[in-house]
Design a protein around this nucleic acid. Sequence first.
DNA 1: CACCATTTACTGTCCGAACAAGTAAATCCG
DNA 2: CGGATTTACTTGTTCGGACAGTAAATGGTG
Lengths: 171, 171
Amino acid sequence: MSQPESTDARPSTTTDATGLADMPDSVAAGAINHAILRVARLHRMLAGQLLRRVGLHPSQELVMMQLWDRGPQRQTDLVRLLGSDAATMTRTIRRLENAGFVRRRPSPTDKRVTIVEPTAASNALRTEVEQVWMDLETSVAEGMTPAQQAEVIEVLGRIEESLARATSQEA
Amino acid sequence: MSQPESTDARPSTTTDATGLADMPDSVAAGAINHAILRVARLHRMLAGQLLRRVGLHPSQELVMMQLWDRGPQRQTDLVRLLGSDAATMTRTIRRLENAGFVRRRPSPTDKRVTIVEPTAASNALRTEVEQVWMDLETSVAEGMTPAQQAEVIEVLGRIEESLARATSQEA
DNA sequence: CACCATTTACTGTCCGAACAAGTAAATCCG
DNA sequence: CGGATTTACTTGTTCGGACAGTAAATGGTG
């Protein structure tokens, strides 16, 4: 029953830039998947640790950053900008409102929409959140050369493209 | 779809009271962070779509794969292997148990531990889950040359290393 | 042996993510 | 004009993730 073949998630050194003639079990083992999951988990964990200091939960800072950068937004726009979910956004906005960082206002032209805007009180948060965001970016980029950082962005973009294609096909 | 245009409401160069050092705009804008978040979200979304077909929720498949690969495990071991949380694991195991994929057995030598083992019924799942895992890996890797795939793994490993270092320091 | 710190598992609570379903308003179209 | 459809938002539910607190068992040390 047990399949002793390639239970290891990391081939670690397939880094021979030479032949690559073999199409190894890496796909079967899901090496890239595992790597993405580990990165995602660590990234979320670190972001959570940093955001806790400013009193926000992960994802709330993304909403605030959109509002700070782009000004008042409809909830639907926030959903679209963040690739989130309408139901989730409703609750996140409510919590941000209860925390005093956001205000909700009905649209005068369309009675369906509610416009979300950052409060003056939220401005105190802005610097802190941007500091957290920079700390996070620095933690990832530190120890990398600028060329490596550019490579990271390129590679992540490639993955994103693949995933977006697969997701849309799946839908 | 690549450049988040970062409407600069502020020029991210020093002279503010926060004592921020000069940084490349890319760091201030958090380009890598954004990219990681997008990849993580898409990856989770796609995994969720695929896993739904086999009746599992994301992360449950990871527990099952550990059990299939390594045999019966203590909950603590599963937590450690998956980098998860003890509380989360308790509930995930309970759901897998209710679904009939897992059985729990008290350890004869240590009355604190419960040993989790896959049921015979779960074997039917195994092939499906492995297929999902391969589909997922294929979706990510497809359209990439083997060299690019190797580059992806290398880059993700580099990010993981940075994040792991930062996370441990933060703790 | 007795005491105490550690380990293991569980529960409660709060949060985001996702799906389903429902309501109200706006828009489209015949 | 009026019904059908689309849009915007909300609520209910289930899940993973994380923190805090608890209880029981274990293991080491005085």
